[in-house]
Amino acid sequence: NQESVVAAVLIPINTALTVGMMTTRVVSPTGAPAEDIPRLISMQVNQVVPMGTTLMPDMVKGYAP
């Protein structure tokens, strides 16, 4: 099972992602793949992402898996 990126903390809208904001988990439906964490760092979210929420590609500005 592939791990997806999950918010480790509450991420406010327009916040640039840091490694400490993200964790990985096997979830369904799958979100952004765990191996993309290095690409996701410094990208901004376009909505509030509550802690424990799977990071879906459409939540991150300019990100395409």
Rank of each mutant, 00 (worst) to 15 (best):
V6M: 02
M56F: 07
T15A: 12
T24N: 04
A34T: 05
V19Y: 14
A32L: 15
S28W: 13
G31S: 05
N46C: 10
Q44F: 10
I11Y: 00
S42V: 07
M59N: 02
V27H: 02
V48F: 10
P38A: 11
T53F: 11
I41E: 03
M22P: 08
R25I: 08
V9E: 11
Q44R: 14
I13E: 14
R39W: 09
V9T: 11
L10R: 12
I41H: 00
S4A: 04
R39S: 06
Q47S: 04
P65S: 11
S42Q: 09
L55G: 02
A16G: 08
A7V: 08
N46V: 10
V60P: 05
T23P: 08
P50E: 11
T30I: 15
S4L: 07
P65E: 10
N46H: 06
G20I: 10
I37H: 01
P12V: 09
P33V: 06
T30Y: 14
V27M: 06
M43P: 01
M56T: 08
V19T: 11
P38I: 09
Y63G: 03
P65T: 11
V49C: 01
T54S: 05
I37R: 02
V19I: 14
E3H: 11
P29S: 04
V27R: 13
V26Y: 13
Y63T: 03
S42M: 10
A8C: 09
I13Y: 12
N1L: 12
A34Q: 04
E35N: 12
P33E: 00
A34D: 01
M43T: 02
M43V: 05
M22A: 08
Q2W: 12
I13P: 10
T30W: 12
V45H: 02
R39F: 11
A34L: 04
A32N: 03
D58I: 08
K61Q: 11
I11C: 05
M21V: 04
E35G: 13
P33R: 07
P57C: 09
I11T: 01
Q44N: 04
S28L: 11
V26G: 05
V19N: 10
M21Q: 07
T15V: 09
G31K: 01
A7G: 00
Q44G: 03
N1C: 14
I41N: 01
V6Q: 00
Y63M: 06
P50G: 06
Y63D: 04
L17F: 06
A32Q: 04
Y63P: 04
T18C: 09
M51L: 11
A7T: 05
A64K: 15
G31Q: 01
V26H: 12
M21S: 07
V49E: 02
V27C: 08
Q47D: 03
V60W: 01
S42N: 15
L10Y: 14
T15L: 06
S28Y: 14
V26I: 14
N46Q: 06
V6G: 00
S42R: 09
S42D: 13
G31Y: 02
V48E: 15
V48L: 13
I37L: 11
P38K: 09
K61I: 15
P33K: 06
P12W: 09
L17A: 06
P29W: 02
A32K: 03
Q47M: 09
V45N: 01
T30E: 13
V9L: 06
N14W: 15
S4C: 08
L40I: 04
N14Q: 04
V6S: 00
S42L: 08
Y63W: 06
T54N: 04
D58L: 05
A8F: 09
L10V: 07
G31L: 03
D36Q: 02
Q47A: 07
P65V: 12
P29K: 01
T15W: 08
T15R: 04
D58P: 04
N46E: 03
E35V: 12
D58S: 15
M22C: 09
R39I: 12
A8G: 03
E35Y: 14
N14V: 07
V9I: 12
M56S: 05
M22T: 08
R25K: 13
N46M: 09
R39T: 10
M56Q: 10
E35H: 14
A16P: 14
N46Y: 07
P65C: 10
Q2D: 12
E35C: 13
K61E: 13
V9R: 06
I11F: 01
P50S: 08
I37C: 02
L55E: 00
N14A: 06
M21W: 06
I37V: 07
G20D: 13
E3F: 11
V19F: 15
V5L: 02
T24H: 10
D36S: 05
P29F: 06
G20T: 13
I37W: 04
G31F: 01
D58F: 15
E3G: 10
P50T: 09
M59S: 04
A34S: 07
Y63I: 03
D36M: 08
Y63C: 00
Q44Y: 12
D36A: 05
E3Q: 13
M21K: 03
R39K: 13
Y63Q: 04
E3D: 04
S42H: 12
I37N: 00
N1P: 14
G52E: 04
G20H: 14
Y63L: 04
T23M: 13
T18V: 09
M51T: 05
L10A: 06
L55Y: 02
V27D: 06
T15G: 06
A34V: 07
V45M: 05
T23C: 10
G62E: 07
T53W: 11
M59K: 01
Q44W: 08
G31E: 02
I11G: 01
G52P: 02
I41C: 00
A16Q: 14
N14R: 00
N46F: 08
L10F: 12
M56Y: 06
T54Q: 02
A8D: 01
P29D: 04
S42A: 12
V19M: 14
Q44L: 11
I11W: 00
P38W: 12
N14I: 08
N46I: 10
M59C: 03
S28E: 13
V19R: 15
Q44E: 14
M56C: 07
T53V: 11
P33F: 06
I13T: 12
L55K: 02
V5M: 02
L17V: 06
V5H: 04
N14T: 08
V48D: 15
V27T: 11
A34K: 10
D58C: 14
E35S: 15
M56V: 03
I37T: 02
I13M: 14
N1W: 11
P12Q: 10
T53R: 11
P65W: 06
A32T: 10
L40K: 01
L17G: 06
P50Q: 11
A64H: 14
I37M: 11
T23K: 08
D58Q: 13
M43F: 06
M22H: 07
T53N: 08
Q47E: 06
P65F: 08
P65I: 11
G20R: 12
K61D: 14
V48S: 14
N14P: 00
T24S: 14
V5Q: 02
V48M: 15
T54Y: 02
E35R: 15
S4Y: 07
I41G: 00
V9S: 03
S28T: 14
